[in-house]
Amino acid sequence: MRMNRQKQMELLRLLEEDSRQDVEQLAKMLAEPKEEIEKAIAALEEENIIVKYPALINWERVDDHPYVTAMIDVKVTPKRDVGFDEVAKRICRFPEVQAVYLMSGASYDLSVVLEGKTMREVASFVSQKLATIDSVVSTATHFILQRYKHDGIELEDRDEDRRMVVTP
C-alpha cells in the first residue's frame, strides 16, 4: 500500500516543522506503519522533494560570527530562448551566493541572497563578479541588519520587555 497524497503532505509538513523527529514518532502521528513512513521518506528524497534537513541557527547569538548577509536586487535583460534562466544559473555557481529567486511585480528581476565576511567583500562581489555578467543591467544591495523571523520561526523571545526602566 502506498501512502495517499494527504498523508504525504502531512508528513512533509511535520518534517519541515521538525526534521529531527524519528520515524517511529512520525508513524504514530500519521497512523501509518513505520515501514510505510520509511518508504515515503526515501521516495521523497529520491524525487528531490526533500532536499536537505537543515538546522536553523540564530547566528546573531554566536560570538565572533564574521558574516554579513546581503539581499541584492538584480535587473537583467533576458536572453532569447532562455529568458532569465541562463543568468540565474550563472549567479548560482558563485559559492558566496546562498539563494537566487526570479521575482515578479518588482522593479528588478532576480533577488540574490549573499553572505560575505564584510560589507566591503559583498561590495567587491557585486562590482567585480555580479555587475560584470552580460545581461545584468543594474543592482541594488541591501544589508540585513537584524533578523526577527526566519523560515516561520521567531529568532528572539518577543515576550520579554527589554526597555530600560526609567524612574522619576
Rank of each mutant, 00 (worst) to 15 (best):
R162F: 08
S19C: 11
I41H: 01
D159Q: 08
D109C: 05
G83S: 07
I144N: 13
S107C: 09
D161H: 02
D161K: 07
Y101K: 10
L44I: 04
M1C: 02
R2Q: 08
S124A: 06
M103T: 14
H150Q: 15
D109T: 10
T77R: 13
N48I: 10
V82W: 12
D64A: 14
L110G: 03
R61D: 10
I72K: 03
V87W: 01
V136R: 06
E16Q: 11
P54A: 03
E32Y: 02
K79R: 14
D151H: 11
R2I: 04
M164C: 07
R162V: 09
K52P: 08
E38C: 02
D22E: 05
T77Q: 10
E121V: 07
E16R: 07
D81A: 12
E121D: 15
P54C: 00
P33M: 00
R120I: 09
V113A: 14
R158V: 12
T141A: 06
V87S: 11
L114Q: 07
V113C: 07
D63Y: 10
S138W: 03
R147A: 03
Q146S: 10
K34V: 15
F84I: 13
C92Y: 13
K34I: 12
E32L: 10
F84H: 15
E86N: 11
P54H: 03
I144R: 07
A43F: 06
P78Y: 04
E154A: 06
R120N: 08
E46W: 07
V97A: 08
E115P: 02
K79S: 15
E96A: 15
M71L: 15
T69D: 14
K34Y: 06
Q8K: 04
V113Q: 10
A106M: 13
M29R: 08
N48S: 13
D159N: 06
E121F: 01
A31G: 03
V136T: 08
L155G: 03
P168I: 09
S127W: 05
K34R: 15
P78E: 06
F143C: 07
A43M: 06
L145T: 13
I144G: 13
D81P: 04
V74A: 08
E17M: 13
P95T: 14
R20P: 00
N4V: 00
V51N: 07
K75P: 05
M119P: 02
R147L: 03
I50R: 04
K7Q: 01
Q25M: 13
Y148V: 10
E32H: 00
M164N: 11
I72N: 02
P168V: 11
K28T: 02
R147I: 05
K34G: 09
